[in-house]
Design a binder for these strands. Structure first.
Lengths: 234, 234
DNA sequence: TCCTGGTATATTGTATACAATATTCCGAAA
DNA sequence: TTTCGGAATATTGTATACAATATACCAGGA
């Protein structure tokens, strides 16, 4: 029939995985916390079997660590880890931007345009809850970046980026707090968009790399500020 | 106690995974073949449970594809897939070489030197079986490349490269057949080694990229030759 | 008090049973 | 002959039971 369904898996085990992934990324199970299979099974209303599969998968993706006979823990990220990840993101997303410049469709450009505009206009929105705002920002930002990855036309590259970007939001939400950082971020988006429109791969890559390094620096600064302000950890 | 053990998992399920991985990479289960859980379980002398976990893990790594309610198949690679992978390898290994240039230790250089020498001298060896020869070549080549990845000092980069390089040998063994290609390959190894010794990251990267692109071209040529010679597929 | 050993408990790892789903095969009707 | 059910079979997906292992707890001796 059709091999076109690359929907991966379907129900339950896959559902558990998606849910677990969300919980980890949104920080519901904070880094370092133990992930006891039976508890997860209860939380998610299934048996341990699909939970186990989800954990194995999450471990392969680097979201959790599995210690033999001792179980899984939500992976925690040291500063060194974050540096590694941002270094790779710069490399991979920069490359994606470079490739995208010569292949991106106008539909994809439109989608990015819309996402960039939404991010800009949201500066003057007022959200009911801070949470909603972060969600909005993360969502549109993801569209922007994912569209580039897709436009690069390398599926493996997309998969790898998804892995790397799957870092607990907790580490990234700082990014979205201050107006100044958001403005600069928006500026980068526009620069990247321009370069892509002009088909200038080198500029697209350079701007993407700067964009990511800027994000990295903001993150590290906030972490430093936080750790000196409240060394006790929540 | 010690978190230092990053031995990942330990027995059985992990063992099955390692074994499955080997079987896939060595081409024992050829691309496209169905991987029925019970058969694997019998083959490996365990129940379906650990097999399942191994399959999930292998799927996360891209070695197999899992279709919901229909099972797993050994992933097959189109020419487009191979191009994607080599593109990423060039990017990632090039970057690794660049990073390695400023951090590599003399012990690591020695290891690479030994591997390169072994590959050179093996040109005049005679092996009992062709299989042994390929194994020898693959092994030493792996040492050369893995050492660079390690020297780059980015664990995630190492993990990603392991994923990408985990392509059925079947697709790569052509590479090792002819003397001429091996000589050129050896030349690249020497160039990379020199650049690393001199701490010249840019050259190391450039040579590494060329090395990989050369490998890609050899592979594509042999595939083309093969497919025109025997279009019927085994 | 501090260490030591051993038992109790908690949790993981694997096997098996059964349910859900897909695939195959076969016969009847057009 | 072809096509369409529809049972029979094969295989996956999930739950549960039990074994293996690690952790926590407690008593006894130094």
């Amino acid at each position: 029939m059709e091999d076109l369904y690359t929907k991966e898996e379907s129900s339950s085990a896959d559902h558990v995985y998606q849910r677990l992934r969300r919980l980890l990324i949104e920080g519901f199970y904070p880094p370092g916390s133990r992930l006891v299979e039976e508890r997860l099974a209860n939380d998610l209303g299934v048996s341990r079997t699909p939970v186990r599969q989800a954990l194995v998968r999450a471990a392969a993706e680097g979201l959790v660590q599995i210690f033999p006979n001792r179980g899984a823990v939500a992976r925690s990220f040291s500063v060194a880890d974050l540096l590694e990840m941002y270094d790779l993101r710069a490399l991979l997303e920069g490359h994606a931007a470079y490739l995208a410049a010569s292949r991106i469709t106008s539909a994809q450009l439109d989608r990015m345009e819309a996402a960039a505009t939404a991010l800009e206009e949201s500066l003057s929105y007022t959200f009911e809850r801070r949470e909603d705002e972060v969600h909005f920002l993360v969502e549109h930002n993801a569209v922007f970046h994912q569209t580039i990855a897709e436009a690069a036309g390398n599926q493996r590259l997309v998969a790898m980026l998804n892995q790397i970007v799957a870092v607990p939001l907790q580490f990234r939400s700082f990014y979205w707090y201050r107006t100044e950082e958001r403005q600069i971020s928006n500026f980068f988006h526009r620069s990247i968009l321009n370069a892509l429109r002009l088909g200038d791969g080198d500029r697209a890559r350079a701007m993407m790399r700067e964009h990511i390094f800027y994000g990295r620096d903001v993150l590290l600064q906030s972490r430093r500020a936080e750790s000196s302000a409240a060394p006790g950890e929540e």
